[in-house]
Amino acid sequence: MTAPFRDITPAERARSTSFYEASARTRLELLLDAGSFVEFIGPEQREISPHLNIFDLPEQFDDGIVVGHGRLDGAPVFVAAQEGRFMGGAFGEVHGAKLTGLLRAAREIGRIPVLILFDTGGVRLQEANAGELAIAEIMRAVMEARAAGVKVIGLIGGRSGCYGGGGLIAGCCSALAVSEPGRIAVSGPEVIETNRGVEEFDSRDRALVWRTMGGKHRRLLGAADVFAHDNVQDFREAALALLDLVGPFGLERLKAEQERLADRLRRYGACLDAVDIWTAEGIAHAETVPELPADQFIALADRIGRTSRDAR
């Protein structure tokens, strides 16, 4: 390391590094115990997309996802991190296969948890069918890994958010941590506007996008279990906390999840805006939630207590 960094501990570096701004590789380096990351199918193996060349589009040597294993507070973990700046972190054939393979390895071993650092707009449209199949394979692989006793934790705070098939996979995870700039949904703002009209959803209304899909709303709805500050150290601590919290997976838990979602629909199905939901949840001055600093928001979210700890 260079002189200015010599006296900085890894934790301090992780605390001062924005998760949103960092690359997939930097996120993994700072999330895991220092020097513990070992990559599977690294860029030097050049497992690139077989489709992009046909469209005269640039390739990336890791196809936009970094997978491997490392240690978190001394304990082994499998990790996957999407690079949201390469084609919006979208799932192509190779990209998806790397995550499927990682999850199947975790299923075979049966104990070592998996952390997925989502940063994706969904399926890479140039690889449409292969990408859609990859989403289905990954969802199955997540559920098979969980059924084999593996905890699968999603961390969401990247510039591309977690959209499309990524949102579906996130819904299959044991637990999620999200930061304010992280967004979780299936159809993105532009997709909704294109299909249903600007009266339904104005994709240029940033405040609307964030209060509908952003990290604060997902935390208050119970879709995400932990709200993290936008730095890598906070996501590391969130991952450790979630690994502690997640209980065993089975039919009872799935039934509890179904009940949680049905209850949510009953309570809030008629709400027209996220502010209406927050008001219905009993939050005074709900319209101020988007402006709350992270610390105050975390205190509020913990008081509301709507987490999915008993379900999922």
Partner: peptide, 12 residues
């Protein structure tokens, strides 16, 4: 033996 930097994105 190997190293990698950067991301394939517009202007990168």
């Amino acid at each position: 033996q190997t190293a990698i930097v950067g991301v394939v994105a517009s202007g990168n």
